[in-house]
Design a protein around this nucleic acid. Sequence first.
DNA 1: AATGAATGAGGATTCATTCAT
DNA 2: GATGAATGAATCCTCATTCAT
Lengths: 206, 206, 206, 206
Amino acid sequence: MAEKKRERRDPEQRRAEILAAAFACFAERGFAATRMEDVAARAGIAKGTVYLHFPDKERLFIELVSGVASPILGEVGGMVQKETIPARTAVSMFYALFKREVLETERRHLLRLILAEGPMFPVVTEFYYREIITKGVAIVRVLLARAAARGELRNPAVVDVPQLVMAPALMSIIWTTLFEGYEHLDTQKLFDTFLDTLFVPEGGAI
Amino acid sequence: MAEKKRERRDPEQRRAEILAAAFACFAERGFAATRMEDVAARAGIAKGTVYLHFPDKERLFIELVSGVASPILGEVGGMVQKETIPARTAVSMFYALFKREVLETERRHLLRLILAEGPMFPVVTEFYYREIITKGVAIVRVLLARAAARGELRNPAVVDVPQLVMAPALMSIIWTTLFEGYEHLDTQKLFDTFLDTLFVPEGGAI
Amino acid sequence: MAEKKRERRDPEQRRAEILAAAFACFAERGFAATRMEDVAARAGIAKGTVYLHFPDKERLFIELVSGVASPILGEVGGMVQKETIPARTAVSMFYALFKREVLETERRHLLRLILAEGPMFPVVTEFYYREIITKGVAIVRVLLARAAARGELRNPAVVDVPQLVMAPALMSIIWTTLFEGYEHLDTQKLFDTFLDTLFVPEGGAI
Amino acid sequence: MAEKKRERRDPEQRRAEILAAAFACFAERGFAATRMEDVAARAGIAKGTVYLHFPDKERLFIELVSGVASPILGEVGGMVQKETIPARTAVSMFYALFKREVLETERRHLLRLILAEGPMFPVVTEFYYREIITKGVAIVRVLLARAAARGELRNPAVVDVPQLVMAPALMSIIWTTLFEGYEHLDTQKLFDTFLDTLFVPEGGAI
DNA sequence: AATGAATGAGGATTCATTCAT
DNA sequence: GATGAATGAATCCTCATTCAT
């Protein structure tokens, strides 16, 4: 039997541990199927301890889901700043960032969580729309507008549906989450192919 | 006092009613948060009656999720047959079918369900991969190969990642499911713009 | 082991059984210390069954406490009707009724319950004031006024504090509840002595 | 940041503070519904500190309830000494003392506590019977016997049920506790009226 | 076949108590 | 001594499932 150590710890750190454990659990089984005891066990603490940091399961979930995405946002924001780089490079960097920070991380389960629990947690959906989507779409729109102005787009109409740029990222997440076990999807190729489709070749056609 | 109606009914029809009710419930709240009583109530029958048709909640879910997608598949399959029509038209027809049969139907919640409950029901995921994805990808691949051969694609490399063609459809579902309440997405434009990006203009100028 | 029989039963009867069991439990240990399982066990049913009849513990308690007193009230009311009988006889009959229907019944624990849980259940207190106390006081006041008019009272001022008439009844309950085990209180004598103190002797000598 | 005050304090005083806080809490919500943390908070100390002074919740309760009543007892005892004063005066003084020291104090909740928790804490009930009731009844009996001998009582039989004298006090507490918010009871009048009923008028009729 | 009352395992939450700091 | 984070037993309540009618 492992010793129960009553390990006291810095509250901020403990909180973070719980959030990490909770994220793993929720991502694995969804909100309803996750037991608070699972979360506690995963965090290596007792059931009751979770409640010292979060008032109830719902709040734990909400704070969790709200907190996971925020950090990435900053980096993305910086991307639009540099006007000099070609739009394709910028979008490419975005995909790379997405791969590194989401797709190849536990965060890849985030979409599933939000999608799955959205109807039960409108607050979360609203948060994501307001904090992430809105900003993301805005950034992409600027990027595309700039690209269109420079003649970098094969089809300038894309500017009006910036969501299209996100579509391959969505696909990558969903495929990875659901079907990677059955058939591998080369996400890099997915992104690159889409970029090649979206933007005129660098060399500049005749 | 209202009479207790013990409406006896054709088993097959009853079964279908239960499945419909179950789909509505599961789509709305997910597997765990749906109570068998909800399903029964929605089907207008008593709790116990559900168990006369399905052995338990899990089986109800699995049979349900497996049954919803199948009907569409046939139509899609027919599409690849007609070699004469241009690939763009075929893909366009696919998007139209998708819109009509999925996006604008209750079936649009299917993705959410599969994504959400996937980890808990590998059988379902496996079923979808085997029955739907595999076939869908194969069809698209044929379509794209044919298009590439005819020079209809701006970027022939797309043939290697047929999933790209599905990406806008995914985006449309997810946006509709999550954010339509906050901001409208013109899915037709999304699809058309993507088509315009994917395929060379019809006029096929130099 | 007694067989678990899944005994189905008339809802009204079941409800009554639960209320009886609940009353016994609450009276014995108070609201907080009573477990719903205790109530169920005492009623000879399963935990969950209680919840088919009462939405939660609080409601069970409230409905219970509200329902216990009502039946007695009717009888008391009838008492004031007969103008012909002497007030002393009427009050004496009231004490007798009180003894028979409250003091020597499980209902004797009611005061304890109300007093104990009053602050936690203002609804209950309000109910008792409105439904029982108000009416009781009114009846006694009429009785005393009549008695005063007829010169039956040693001290007519009693009319202004009808609560005084209830005081011996309270004492009897409290003594019985708390100290009867240590020392017997002859409640009949308590009542009779009070009556002899309150009313002038019948013979009404000079 | 406010400094953590580790106010060390005279143990006896600390103990008293805890008892006071505990009394307030228990009186307000009863034993079960009072959390040790409430008590600690009310005493302005940390949860753990309570346990430095009392081994557990039960003991805290018992010591508390046992300690509250004792002080009054002395005064009451003195009352019987003075043989010279009329019994009515003595009883009147007792009511006055009761009003001042119990009814108009937080101690008025004591009865509720004892009554409510009696069945769970026989020790407490026994203590009250032994230490308070026995002595109180004895005193009243002596007073009444003396009064009877002097012809001060309208009904000498009262000597045999000295509890009758306590009844108005009980009524005053219970009414005050439960119904004062709905309807005021003039306790002074209640006591005075009872005294007028119990004792022959001072002037001494022919 | 259909019903819905009954069951009881399961999970969220609370809180008395302990103990490392 | 004092603190309050940590623990886990205890309890409310839900809901999948059963079964007598």
